[in-house]
């Protein structure tokens, strides 16, 4: 059972291994706090929809399963979007259209189709939690690196002094691709070392 949770963190990490959900990964990782909030919102939707799908899987005819999953996911995403707008207005403004776009995040539909529609509720919950945490962790790492080099701070705490010349490219889309490339490279390098 515990394996269902652990695999999302490393061996089947949604970003580094499955390379899913690239749109929010690249777009909102300009700052650590945005990556963190995006990760939390996605994790919430992932867990809620995986559990719901696992609960009702026997009732849903095979032919309409994708439509059903989409409606379930869209409902939870809208809830998350309104909740953020009501309680964390500035974060919601910074994340902009990327919260509603969680609907089309392949990780969520992927987990519903591959895992939750075939497994029981408890395992689906752990799987979703693991995938969500893996996603959030990578977004935080990505956001921290870009924020540190792009504006000298992490979670808005000044780390590098005033003399540090900001690497503007890190805050731009190009910086997201470069950082993600290095992260995936580092990840594969560590994996190879381990296997020896």
């Amino acid at each position: 059972m515990i394996k269902d949770f652990i695999k999302g963190l490393w061996r089947e990490n949604p970003i580094l291994v499955q390379v899913l959900g690239m749109c929010p990964t690249l777009a909102v990782s300009t700052k650590a706090v945005f990556g963190f909030s995006m990760g939390l919102a996605t994790t919430f939707v992932l867990i809620s929809s995986s559990v719901t799908v696992a609960l009702i899987k026997k009732l849903v005819p095979h032919e309409v399963r994708i439509a059903t999953f989409t409606v379930i996911i869209a409902t939870f995403v809208t809830c998350a979007d309104y909740f953020l707008k009501a309680n964390f207005y500035s974060i919601s403004k910074a994340l902009g259209p990327y919260v509603p776009l969680i609907v089309v995040n392949c990780i969520i539909l992927g987990r519903a189709e591959v895992f939750a529609s075939k497994q029981n509720v408890a395992r689906s919950f752990l799987d979703a939690l693991g995938m969500g945490c893996g996603f959030t962790l990578v977004l935080i790492v990505l956001g921290s690196i870009r924020e540190l080099l792009g504006s000298g701070t992490i979670f808005n705490y000044a780390i590098l002094g005033k003399g540090f010349e900001h690497w503007v490219v890190m805050a731009l889309p190009a910086g997201a691709f470069i950082t993600l490339g290095f992260l995936v490279g580092l990840f594969n390098w560590i994996n190879q070392k381990w296997q020896r």
Binding site: V64, V71, C79, Y82
Partner: peptide, 21 residues
């Protein structure tokens, strides 16, 4: 299945909208 799901989802959205707006 789709009708019931649509109704439930609509009801959930009405609830969250009334809370958040």
């Amino acid at each position: 299945v789709l009708t019931v799901l649509g109704l439930l989802s609509g009801a959930a959205l009405v609830f969250i909208y009334r809370y958040a707006s």
